[in-house]
Computed example of a mutant assay.
Amino acid sequence: MQEQQEKHDWEDKVPEVVQDEKDDKPAGRNIILVILIAIIILAIVYYFFFRDSANMFS
C-alpha cells in the first residue's frame, strides 16, 4: 500500500507570474496562426517552384 504524502504549503497554488501574465493566451493563439500561415506560404512556394520537377532528387 502506498501512503499518502502530506502536501506542502506551495502545492496546488498558482505562481504569481501566471496570474500577472494574463495576455499569454492570445499570444498562444497568435503562434498557431503564424505557423499555419507559414505552412500555407511554403505550400504555395512548393506548388509554383517544385511541382514540375519529377527528378528533383536524382
Rank of each mutant, 00 (worst) to 15 (best):
M1Q: 09
M1F: 12
M1G: 15
Q2F: 10
Q2C: 09
Q2I: 11
Q4V: 14
Q5M: 13
Q5A: 14
Q5W: 05
E6M: 11
K7F: 11
H8A: 15
H8D: 15
D9P: 01
D9W: 15
W10G: 04
W10Y: 11
E11T: 01
E11Q: 08
E11Y: 00
E11H: 01
K13T: 01
V14Q: 04
V14L: 11
P15H: 00
E16K: 09
V18Y: 12
Q19W: 14
Q19F: 14
D20C: 07
E21S: 11
K22N: 06
P26T: 00
P26K: 01
P26F: 01
A27M: 13
A27P: 00
I31P: 03
L33P: 00
V34W: 13
I35Q: 08
L36M: 09
L36P: 00
I37A: 08
I40C: 10
I40F: 13
I40N: 03
I40D: 02
I41Y: 04
I41T: 01
I41K: 01
I41C: 09
L42S: 07
A43H: 02
A43V: 02
I44W: 05
Y47I: 04
F48S: 02
F49P: 00
F50N: 02
R51W: 07
R51M: 11
D52F: 08
S53A: 07
N55L: 10
M56A: 10
S58E: 07
